[in-house]
Design a protein around this nucleic acid. Structure first.
Length: 414
DNA sequence: TGTCCACAGGAAATACGGGGGT
DNA sequence: ACCCCCGTATTTCCTGTGGACA
């Protein structure tokens, strides 16, 4: 009897979930889960909607020379994250390689992805790995050695070599060294016709370079504009068609998601992410449609998740600093802190959890880092005779502060 | 007008850890 | 086992500064 009740209940719950399902194909809501060919298929549909037309045209005219035996110069590409630089380039290069091989033009392209920051050494090592010139090293081998290995590997390749370097401004430290190698040294030492494709999301990165290297870069420039709301709507429609059931979207929802995403940075990945989150949420609530309110909730939740996951994996001192700032603001009942006060709070907090505190200077850097992640907001103010300091304040909903605080203390004490 | 506070933030030095070559 | 090399984290030392106050 009892058992039957439970069975019925579970069965009806499952049935309810099936009826209210709005996600048909989960994988199309998350690029990570798509295999390459599916990504390309989605991308082709996007291109068919005339999105990124101008950029592809530019690329075509730049590289057309290869098919005539010319040697096109390097190209620099700018655009913010999520504007489709990487995917567009991959797609384009594959197509180009296909055309070349039909005409027996030797061509190789290598995609060096620097989406997480790394020093010169690591970047070179990764490049060497992609070329099969070396294995993965952590440390311990000189830069010179790494460069030689790359050169030797390429010593008898005479065709076109397209080096597609993604997010090049992520090479921290010794950027000059890295660029000098690519721009001046490598072309002189290998027979291949080298073309660099330098992708970055900051317009100003060449300013950081050595003037001599800069002058060697005879660069053609191409800018990927952020997607506007119209483009984003196209992109979202394609995903919705593939991933969701019909009529699961309330009127205005696409527009709202597109507007939110284009307001922020015109990042397509974020837009799709927001769509996905909205769909999950609607399904969890047993609703058959995604409404405008669902989108709001989803956006809030994504925000929260971003903060939480950012902090969870952060170094201990960063967590401690964040926790002490929250604590200090709560106990003093003011809305902002000066650096000195924050440092005091941090010192006593460290004492409590038995963590060796960092110096004043290092703490200031942590504050700056928290500001970059926009976990706090700071600005420099001068109180005249009473000194110059940063004003530190939190800028997030009350409920979020509490949850973050709990999580911090939990992970720190354990 | 000059002083001087309480820091900001750059540069260099130092500490530390870990891997490769021999 | 030893030395060399490199990357990262932190410290030490330093110069710079907006504006209230005398």
């Amino acid at each position: 009897m009892q058992q039957n009740l439970v069975r019925n209940k579970i069965q009806s719950q499952i049935q309810h979930m099936v009826n209210s399902a709005i996600i048909l194909n989960r994988r199309f809501l998350d690029d990570e889960q798509l295999i390459r060919s599916e990504q390309m298929a989605v991308l082709e549909e996007v291109f068919n909607a005339n999105v990124r037309d101008a950029e592809i045209k530019e690329l075509s005219s730049h590289f057309a020379g290869i098919l005539r035996g010319d040697h096109p110069c390097h190209i620099a590409i700018w655009g913010k994250t999520g504007t489709g630089k990487t995917l567009t380039l991959c797609y384009f290069l594959n197509l180009l390689a296909e055309m070349c091989s039909q005409q027996n033009i030797p061509i190789r392209h290598v995609h060096l992805d620097l989406s997480n920051p790394r020093p010169c050494f690591r970047a070179l090592n990764d490049l060497a790995c992609l070329l099969n010139a070396s294995k993965k090293y952590q440390k311990g081998i000189s830069l010179e050695e790494m460069m030689l290995r790359i050169e030797n590997k390429l010593a008898d390749y005479e065709g076109y070599l397209l080096l597609f370097i993604d997010e090049i401004d992520n090479v921290r430290r010794d950027m000059d060294n890295f660029m000098r190698f690519l721009v001046r040294r490598l072309p002189q030492r290998i027979p291949a016709k080298l073309i660099l494709i330098l992708v970055s999301n900051r317009l100003d990165w060449p300013e950081m370079l050595d003037a001599r290297v800069k002058s060697f870069l005879k660069i053609n420039e191409l800018i990927f504009k952020p997607y506007d709301a119209v483009d984003l709507k196209h992109i979202l429609r394609i995903r919705i068609e593939k991933a969701l059931t019909e009529n699961s979207i309330a009127p205005g929802v696409i527009e709202k998601i597109a507007a939110l995403a284009s307001q922020q940075h015109g990042d397509a990945r974020k837009a799709v992410g927001l769509l996905a989150q909205s769909a999950y949420l609607a399904e969890k609530n047993g609703s058959k449609t995604i409404t405008l309110e669902t989108v709001d909730q989803a956006a809030a939740q994504l925000d929260m998740d971003r903060y939480i996951s950012l902090l969870r994996s952060a170094p201990a001192h960063l967590k401690a600093a964040m926790a002490s700032i929250i604590h200090a603001l709560k106990t003093t009942n003011t809305s902002c802190l000066a650096t000195g006060q924050a440092y005091e709070a941090y010192l006593s907090f460290c004492g409590k959890i038995k963590l060796r505190p960092l110096s004043n200077r290092a703490f200031a850097d942590i504050i700056a880092e928290l500001d970059i992640y926009s976990l706090i907001r700071t600005r420099i103010i001068s109180k005249g005779r009473y000194g110059r300091t940063r004003e530190i304040l939190l800028d997030m909903p009350e409920s979020m502060i509490d949850r973050i605080n709990e999580m911090l203390i939990d992970t720190l004490i354990r």
